[in-house]
Design a binder for these strands. Structure first.
Lengths: 215, 215
DNA sequence: ACCTGAACACCGTTCAAGT
DNA sequence: ACCTGAACACCGTTCAAGT
């Protein structure tokens, strides 16, 4: 009952509030725009106050990455191996696309925290239950994860025109590809000039899950 | 014959010399240490002189990435589809491992230059020759590339201890994994605590090439 | 055409001081 | 325990001046 009457107890600083505001800053202005000073300004606070809750800029970026990771929903409990892996892969993608400008933090950093271990457990459980020996289960997990990281990196870094929405951008890209004078590139130019990220994602994921089911 | 007598014509600045020195700087001190000023100091030149040859820091980083890409050897000319793709994949990996601290520049950036198009041509040619329709050839290329980017990112960002060389680091990691109290993670902990990057690379590559050959 | 140096508007972080 | 502000050692890049 104490400290909670009248208006809220004060918009006090906290690790949580700092991370939320930092994510908003990345969403709005991109990763390059993140600075301790600018973040402090947004929070109406002295830059050095942040250091009471966050262990420097690098730890701040790790923190943002963990917020993104935490947004991956757990897979449906009763599901089989393939459905579980597919659900987690789609959940991962959705979490990254929810904050495309922050996604490279997840895709680029080696995260050691517990938050990163939850999805690992969620994949490994069904793999072991399906009879995979632990070493092969880890192999499978890592192969799929590598693919996910690679495709999502392409998707979030891609210029919006690469998705094919902007016909002028596509035309320019087509032109560049043809001008290169490389025969195979020219022949495939219409397909190189655009990228249906979702289709690429589904294609690669299917191939990998098929291979794991077979192998 | 002019300007080449006595000692060399002067250790003059050039885009090439700048990129080589920048790569050396990344190799020695890491990406975070790269600054226009420090690079200029190494070259014995005013920072602003760099701008006569390179279009700012971002273009410099793109330039370094292109130097790395250019180191991928062309595949053996007479080879079949699978051998060609395998050779390029291994060449890509070798190029990144030659400069692990600079590799994220390649793995992270969308490169539009001609240098990036040469390997694409080298893959697409055999794919089309093998009868792949252009759209499926591009699909295949992108799936493999996504996997390569993901695995190599893991490999170059990994702490050296993750490779299993340092038994003390492995023990600490094992402990963390067991302490998490996640059953599947605990069961697979010995395999999660280390990573044989080469084996992971070969495993994923084989799966993908098999799938493409079959499909 | 290329190089220079001063200047501007920023950075992350340490440290001593406050409450 | 948390917040502050000055200070230090840096940044990338613009601009006017030199050769």
């Amino acid at each position: 009952m104490t400290g909670r009457r009248g208006r809220p107890p004060k918009d006090v600083l906290s690790r949580d509030r700092i991370l939320r505001e930092a994510l908003a800053l990345v969403d709005e202005d991109g990763l390059a725009a993140v600075s301790m000073r600018k973040l402090a300004r947004r929070l109406g606070v002295d830059p050095m106050s942040l250091y009471n809750h966050v262990d420097g800029k690098d730890a701040l970026l790790d923190g943002i990455a963990e917020v993104l990771l935490a947004a991956i929903p757990p897979p449906p409990p009763g599901a089989g191996l393939r459905e579980t892996m597919s659900a987690l892969a789609h959940g991962f993608r959705a979490a990254m696309l929810g904050h495309p400008r922050a996604a490279p933090l997840v895709l680029t950093r080696q995260l050691a925290s517990m938050t990163a271990l939850a999805p690992v457990e969620a994949v490994l459980g069904p793999l072991l239950a399906a009879g995979f020996p632990p070493d092969r289960a880890v192999h499978a997990l890592r192969a799929v994860l590598a693919f996910l990281i690679g495709t999502l990196m392409r998707e979030v870094e891609a210029a919006p025109t690469f998705s094919g929405t902007d016909p002028e951008g596509v035309r320019r890209r087509l032109e560049t590809l043809e001008e290169a004078g490389l025969p195979a590139v020219s022949a495939a130019a219409p397909f190189l000039a655009v990228c249906d990220h979702e289709a690429e994602f589904e294609f690669g994921l299917r191939i990998l899950l098929d291979a794991l089911a077979a192998g």
